[in-house]
Write a protein that binds this DNA or RNA. Structure first.
Lengths: 232, 232
DNA sequence: CGTAGGGTTGAGGTTAATCAAGTATGGTGG
DNA sequence: CCACCATACTTGATTAACCTCAACCCTACG
């Protein structure tokens, strides 16, 4: 049995809360187990609340008019999604879909807003979290808009490394937290192009790819390349 | 003499505040007049507070390692910038520069955070504002990542129209709120490419361009084109 | 007038999307 | 245990978008 409070505490939203507040929050949480591949909510759905990932992973993506998808982010345990819509008062701005069997915690909108009113401690966390999302999007934006695919990929890998300092130490091996086609969409490109980008990085002896496992051969070289952008 | 409270009230951040709160807020505001072309703050500067545009306009942009710039937004009277950094606690994530002689209101970080703590009314406005920024960036992101230049330009024009319903009515004339080279950077392209995009839209009899003034000839046609994206 | 800056136009080259075919891998049913 | 199929991924050839560099126009302004 999983402890809700432990999960809540893992979220930057609530890590600063008192035990008392955590207990109250835990009481208003509703668990929701979802199968991999199933949709959590759709772009345009009215926002009745938001989610926190307890186990598994969730893909957050937009769909263009013609059906092309662009992955904004993949949420992992401890991360939340849909908060923005709660405060904007508008519909959900994106689709969300479980990438694997996952366990989510659901917080109902009105209930949560009341909780926020009463507990100024949460506010700081919320503001910080939203700011964090902003920074994430800004980085993503300039990465996709200003750099070419190889560079975007390198930067993505470096960001992954920064989040997983665990496997960072030895020769450095990281596992891609999503399928390559999802990653392609995240990097605003296509599977064929991503595949070639990986090949080029291998040819330059920067990395070695084996399925979803990436071995970092030349961290310094990667860092250089990330700053490179000859021109564009 | 300009009334600070009136300016504050124009911002979505503070439009919901009581008169009492407005008065207190107005007292902690510092005015700052800046010449066109001068820098307000730089990316990486420690964030000591944030700004609200009273008069003029301010360009918010990022600089890539090689010096290329990407305009994230242009702030006009009533809009604020730098709020995100206040809450994230980190340095400013972007550069800001006055596009013309402008008058700004400055709110000091600590003072403002205290104000927020005491006044839960502001919180709602803040959260909404940050969410709004999020939505803006998401849209910008998918526009630049997923659509080609012509479409990006059309969408930008439609967004402008949506914000200026004033001139919308007649045949529809809108003035670009920035130079074309700034717009080019905002749309993540270059002046030559933007210029050609304008030409193509003129050839299709969708718009007529005269300097910074754009005459909308075929609103329906533009709407269609915005949804078009044959493939990409 | 002459210069400077924004803007436009032209030629050439590069990136990356598209379409299509091929290769693995994993799960299913015989 | 193996043939079969679905799906992810890779590889190849073609094409189109758009960046770059350069020259040129135009208006503003000294």
């Amino acid at each position: 049995m999983m402890d809700i409070q432990v999960v809540l505490k893992r979220s930057p939203l609530f890590s600063g809360l008192s035990n008392d507040a955590l207990v109250r929050l835990a009481q208003m949480v509703r668990k929701r187990a979802v199968k991999g591949g199933s949709q959590i909510f759709a772009q345009g759905d009215p926002c009745g609340g938001f989610y926190l990932v307890a186990e598994g992973s969730v893909k957050i993506y937009r769909l263009s008019p013609n059906g092309r998808e662009h992955v904004l982010a993949v949420a992992h345990p401890g991360q939340s999604f849909g908060e923005a819509a709660v405060f904007s008062g508008k519909a959900f701005p994106a689709f969300t879909e479980a990438l694997e069997d996952s366990l989510l915690l659901y917080l109902e909108r009105e209930e949560f807003l009341d909780f926020v009113e009463q507990d100024p401690q949460v506010v700081r966390g919320l503001l910080t979290e939203l700011s964090g999302w902003l920074m994430h999007l800004v980085r993503l934006l300039e990465d996709t808009a200003l750099a070419e695919v190889d560079i975007r990929l390198v930067r993505y890998l470096l960001r992954l490394l920064a989040c997983n300092p665990l496997q960072n130490c030895p020769g450095g091996k990281i596992a891609l937290p999503m399928q390559k086609q999802v990653l392609a969409s995240h990097l605003a490109t296509t599977p064929p192009t991503l595949s070639r980008a990986f090949s080029r990085l291998e040819e330059e002896d920067l990395i070695r790819v084996n399925g979803l496992e990436i071995e970092i051969l030349d961290l310094e070289g990667l860092r250089e390349k990330a700053e490179d952008e000859r021109g564009r």
